[in-house]
Design a protein around this nucleic acid. Sequence first.
DNA 1: GCTAAAGTTCGGAAATTTCTGAAGTCTTAC
DNA 2: GTAAGACTTCAGAAATTTCCGAACTTTAGC
Lengths: 157, 157
Amino acid sequence: MNEQECEQQRWQAAERLALVLNAGGLQRMSARVLAVFLFTGAETVTMGDIADRLSVSAGSVSGAVKTLLSTGLIERLPAPGSRREHYRLREDAWPTLFSTQNTVVHVMLQATQAGMAATSSGDPAHHRLGRMRDFYEFLLEELPGLLRRWQGRQEVT
Amino acid sequence: MNEQECEQQRWQAAERLALVLNAGGLQRMSARVLAVFLFTGAETVTMGDIADRLSVSAGSVSGAVKTLLSTGLIERLPAPGSRREHYRLREDAWPTLFSTQNTVVHVMLQATQAGMAATSSGDPAHHRLGRMRDFYEFLLEELPGLLRRWQGRQEVT
DNA sequence: GCTAAAGTTCGGAAATTTCTGAAGTCTTAC
DNA sequence: GTAAGACTTCAGAAATTTCCGAACTTTAGC
């Protein structure tokens, strides 16, 4: 396998992963940009690098980078007096992504509680909502332990 | 609070929950139909019931019900020689939904492995992909135990 | 078998999301 | 201070998703 073939495969894999990240909840452009951060051979990238690689407009890259920054998946490097800003994937990007996805659970719980307040205890809906609440409360209870176990494993390495 | 106010609140809560389910990955119409299954005061519902409640076309309901059936969130009841098919929320709907959402993780892992195959071990991308793979493999390892603990808690009740 | 109600399918309209491109702002270097 | 490059913003175009509705299929009841 020569170098060109490898590069081709690398970016094919990147686009495939972008599709999955997209299915997992990320916006399409955010997913593609995140894939660049993952698959680039460089330690850091600039917005221009990303725009070139994906052949998309600077505006799109700007928006996606802003989103990824605000969700804590990437970080801006303390720029050494450079003209261009440099960014890179954060070390704990994946636990972060996992955690933010679980904020949805919180909102779900609030909705179930509103529903239970609007139904009497004899109502089948009241019972159903109770079961739903129980499950998601269980999930939230389990979350901290899960992340702690992950961090514990990291320290060993 | 009189009966009408309660009904109004009930379905307001239902629509709110539908929005959250939508944000959590479900299609818009599937989410709204699932909310009806949760919030209805009846034990079971027919497609006609759903269409009336949401004021949407029979076609839309048909599509959404088909999806919810295939993902195991609802079930068709062994119809007692009736003209209309009856459906209801499955008892283990929420663990099921949770598990299906985690099939995304499997696909993600496959993509990381393809990426690692296309990069050499000296490449920064190789290292990044390795970290991503480690985290999601960890998650998959934790999943069975999590569901087992949930089932254990259910049996006690 | 016929009828009528229930459910399904699918083409295209409508609505929403997503991206671009151009204009504007900020920063750096000279 | 000025010019040039990097980044941001936003209105509108493009693409995609989503839904309706009409035609079609199936099934229960007679």
